[in-house]
Write a protein that binds this DNA or RNA. Structure first.
Lengths: 188, 188
DNA sequence: TATTTACGTCAACTATATTGACATAAATCT
DNA sequence: AGATTTATGTCAATATAGTTGACGTAAATA
């Protein structure tokens, strides 16, 4: 590692690899200040955002990993393992431990795929749906409160902002996921 | 993504099984739908946001924990252990492991407090400051790109939005931190 | 029939966090 | 001066969430 470090340090060429923004920032001095402030605000906002759910999950002996799985299964009933792995960006081994617990605890159930029987389609049980809803309620309550606090003009900006924060290559995927989840919700 | 869509389509049986929750969500009002969308956007946005830094940190054998410590030490040189623990909300044992590595690798240095010699005041070394700046550059570059993509009217909204997302009891603390960091930054 | 795909599973390991107990030096109170 | 509190370090055990790699199996597909 030290050699990597040394390499990095002794690497004025690295400057070229930097986003020119770094150079600009250095020149501009505090021009970066605002962006840095956003970096920290994002950190604090996310910390508090997940904190709500964490506290509720403790009562069930679950963690954030369970929350994510339950959330996406609930949002998109019939989700396959592969699709879930793709959303969460974790390995199947990692997912498996958490998913197994959710299955055994009766919060999620898996049915064999109809069109492709190798697939396991994941559905929330009524119990799972309830917990998912409670968790979502906490988090969307925070968003609603935020929207109330915000000047009306700023309200629509939040989702635009968050969407723009996503890797551009990922946006279509996310958009499709949202549309799909919305359809599932609307269908009922 | 295509597979997601395909699977979704080939899934009429799932529809029947669809959730009570979704139903309830629909009943609970679609105001929730928007909030739910924000919840997921926040998840994806944060995932990609930290991803940038993660990739750079790998070159140094560091993880997110090191990043957070280095970041705040760099933003607020002279930070005490207690202040850092308060920001990060972790235990001293957890901090210690990471901090020790940063100290040993020469990215951070600790000096005895002047007014209170029990305290260890943390400072970035030149090496640490460089890495911190590189990491920050990646992340603020993302923010700047986002701002460029956003309609001008929405730009100011981002920091208001993020600030409103923070626990109300924490906002003063965060505001103070930002002010302090800004002052420290101005010195450089 | 042969191969690929979707998934499960065992094992070993890493990173990040926790709780609890105890140690030490410096500051502060009485 | 002596007792106590404070700021920090450290050892040990544990939990959670993730990783890579290897191997297995049933079902779809070429």
């Amino acid at each position: 590692m030290d050699e990597l470090v040394a390499k990095k340090i002794s690497e004025p060429p690295g400057v070229a690899a930097w986003p020119n923004t770094a150079a600009e920032a250095a020149v501009a001095g505090d021009g970066d200040g605002d962006a840095l402030e956003l970096v920290e605000l994002f950190f604090f906002a996310y910390r508090d955002f997940v904190g709500d759910a964490d506290r509720l999950l403790e009562n069930y002996g679950f963690g954030r990993a369970h929350h994510r799985v339950l959330h996406f299964v609930n949002r998109r009933p019939g989700l396959t393992i592969a699709a879930l792995l793709d959303i969460l960006r974790i390995t199947k081994q990692s997912l498996n431990r958490v998913l197994k617990q959710l299955l055994e605890a009766g919060f999620v159930e898996a049915r064999a795929g109809v069109v492709d029987r190798r697939q396991r389609l994941l559905y929330p049980t009524p119990q799972g749906a309830t917990l998912a809803r409670d968790l979502a309620a906490l988090q969307s309550a925070r968003f609603r409160k935020v929207m109330d606090e915000l000047p009306p003009a700023a309200r629509g900006a939040a989702s635009k902002f968050l969407f723009a924060m996503i890797d551009s290559g990922e946006r279509e995927r996310v958009r499709a996921h949202l549309a799909c989840a919305k359809a599932a919700g609307a269908a009922t």
